[in-house]
C-alpha cells in the first residue's frame, strides 16, 4: 500500500507497486491532463511536481512516491502558475495542445526557482519537453511574459 497526496488530497494505491505514477494518475485517479508521450522520460508530456520539483511521472514507480506530494496540471496553483496561464492564453501558445500540460509544469517549476529566466535558463528547463507542433517560440516568449507579469 502506497500513500501519497495528489493535488492536496490524500490517496492510497494498493496495486502493482511497479505501476508508474503516470498510469496511477490517469487510469486510477482519472486525472487525464498528464499525458503519455514516450514512456521513457524523453518527451516530458507526463511532467508533474513531486514534492515541489518537476518529475517525469512515466518513469516514476508508484512505490517511489510513498509519502510524497504530487501536483498535476489540474492542481497547479500560485503566482507562477497564474502568470503562466495568463501568458499562455495571451500568446495562444498551444497548437494540438497534447504536450502543453508538461510544458506548463516545467515552466512553472522554472519560474519558481528562477523568477527572471534567461534564454539559457529556459533552454535548460524546457529542453526535456518535446512539442511536435514546435510551439517553442511561443513557449519561450510566454515564459518571459509570465516572468514580467510576476515582476510587475
Amino acid at each position: 500500500m502506497v500513500s501519497f497526496t495528489l493535488n492536496g488530497t490524500e490517496k492510497t494505491f494498493d496495486g502493482d507497486p511497479d505501476t508508474p505514477l503516470l498510469w496511477v494518475i490517469r487510469d486510477f485517479e482519472k486525472l487525464t491532463g498528464t499525458k503519455y508521450g514516450c514512456g521513457v522520460a524523453q518527451c516530458g508530456a507526463c511532467t508533474v511536481h513531486l514534492d515541489g520539483s518537476p518529475r517525469r511521472s512515466c518513469i516514476t514507480p508508484i512505490s517511489m512516491v510513498e509519502g510524497s506530494d504530487v501536483v498535476t496540471v489540474e492542481g497547479i496553483s500560485g503566482a507562477e502558475a497564474d502568470a503562466v496561464h495568463k501568458a499562455w492564453l495571451a500568446l495562444d501558445v498551444p497548437q494540438c495542445g497534447y504536450c502543453q500540460s508538461g510544458q506548463i509544469m516545467s515552466a512553472v517549476a522554472l519560474l519558481q526557482l528562477t523568477p527572471k529566466p534567461s534564454d539559457e535558463d529556459i533552454d535548460g528547463a524546457m529542453a526535456g519537453n518535446i512539442c511536435r507542433c514546435a510551439t517553442y517560440q511561443r513557449v519561450r516568449q510566454a515564459i518571459k511574459d509570465a516572468a514580467g507579469m510576476m515582476e510587475g
Binding site: 491532463g33 492564453l89 500540460s101
Partner: peptide, 13 residues
C-alpha cells in the same frame, strides 16, 4: 487555448 492550457482538453487517450 484555455482548455489546452489547464489539462481539461479531452483527447482520445
Amino acid at each position: 487555448t484555455a482548455e489546452k492550457s489547464n489539462g481539461k482538453a479531452i483527447y482520445t487517450l
